[in-house]
Design a binder for these strands. Structure first.
Length: 289
DNA sequence: CTTTAGGCCTGACGGC
DNA sequence: TGCCGTCAGGCCTAAA
């Protein structure tokens, strides 16, 4: 499932694939994902417009043109696949973006006017897509305005202080606390368990009782885990695929996630499984205090 | 204010 | 072989 590293890898790949392109069409195969898509707003932000940038904020992909910005979320089963076909080739293809190189008419022998297509595929339809016109302040957009800081764009110390301050007086467990996008973005279910394992902190500890020093270690662990996952191209645990259809390899480095009953890689104790807010949580009862 | 439960959605999987 | 229940989970809303 796409978390921060997966979306970061996707943003980088799409940035490369669409460099120097303009949108020449958007085809909606159904009108809604999680919610209805504002078809006209999306078309007017993209069609006929030159691509300016492809960025990531939290788990949102931001596709900016000179007319506006499309905001896309993969939900938990979404993929954005680079295809040659203008027609859906996978089931649950919901939106197909058409792009062409800007200089296609000037250099017809050079990849010519052959269009590229990005297929937004999302079986579970937890994904979402919208767009805003150029000049809109994205930080005030309802989808983005309540988000916490990017964990890889501040120092480990700043992240640690932030987590420590925000957690004071909070009784719920530290694991759902670091997964709360209003606290810090991008730490999804997989990487929350992995970060807490690396930091040696039990996921069930009350967030407000984790010490300042422990948050320093945890902040480091979050950055280490997310950074390594990006390096590995993300985790293809169930549905996630790169835009070229390949899989990320971070699943091979997972220490606890999905390893219930298997031996801890450090101490060989069986990895334990519990739940927080109905989400699977994995930890080593011996290594994590 | 903080916190939690439930809903969205489909495919995979286990039990029978 | 197929049916049925359960689970997966990011993010939202409602409600406590």
């Amino acid at each position: 499932m796409p978390e921060l590293p997966e979306v970061e890898c996707l943003a980088r790949a799409v940035r490369e694939e669409t460099r120097g392109c303009r949108f020449t069409g958007v085809n909606f195969l159904r009108p809604d994902l999680r919610e209805p898509m504002p078809v006209d707003a999306i078309k007017s932000a993209l069609v006929g417009a030159n691509l300016r940038s492809v960025r990531r904020r939290s788990k949102y992909l931001l596709i900016e043109t000179d007319r506006g910005t499309a905001i896309l979320h993969l939900g938990m089963s979404g993929q954005l696949l680079s295809m040659d076909s203008p027609d859906p080739v996978k089931t649950h293809t919901h939106v197909i973006f058409e792009l062409r190189r800007k200089d296609s008419s000037a250099a017809p022998q050079n990849d010519g006017g052959k269009p590229k297509y990005l297929h937004f595929v999302d079986p579970r339809r937890f994904g979402r897509l919208t767009a805003v016109p150029a000049g809109t302040d994205l930080s005030t957009h309802p989808w983005l305005s309540k988000l916490g800081p990017e964990p890889l764009e501040i120092t480990a110390d700043a992240l640690a202080e932030h987590l420590w301050r925000k957690s004071r007086g909070r009784k719920p467990a530290v694991k759902p606390f670091i997964m709360d996008g209003a606290v810090v973005v991008g730490v999804g279910n997989i990487y929350a368990s992995e970060s807490l394992y690396l930091a040696g902190i039990r996921p069930g500890r009350a967030a407000g009782r984790v010490t300042r020093q422990e948050y320093r270690i945890l902040a480091q662990a979050i950055q280490t885990v997310l950074g390594a996952a990006i390096e590995a191209g993300g985790t293809s645990f169930r549905d996630y695929l790169h835009s070229d259809g390949s899989e990320g390899s971070y699943a091979l480095q997972l220490n606890v996630y999905g390893r219930s009953g298997e031996a801890c890689r450090k101490c060989l104790s069986p990895v334990r499984e519990t739940r927080h807010l109905n989400r699977a949580t994995y930890f080593c009862g011996a290594c994590q205090k």
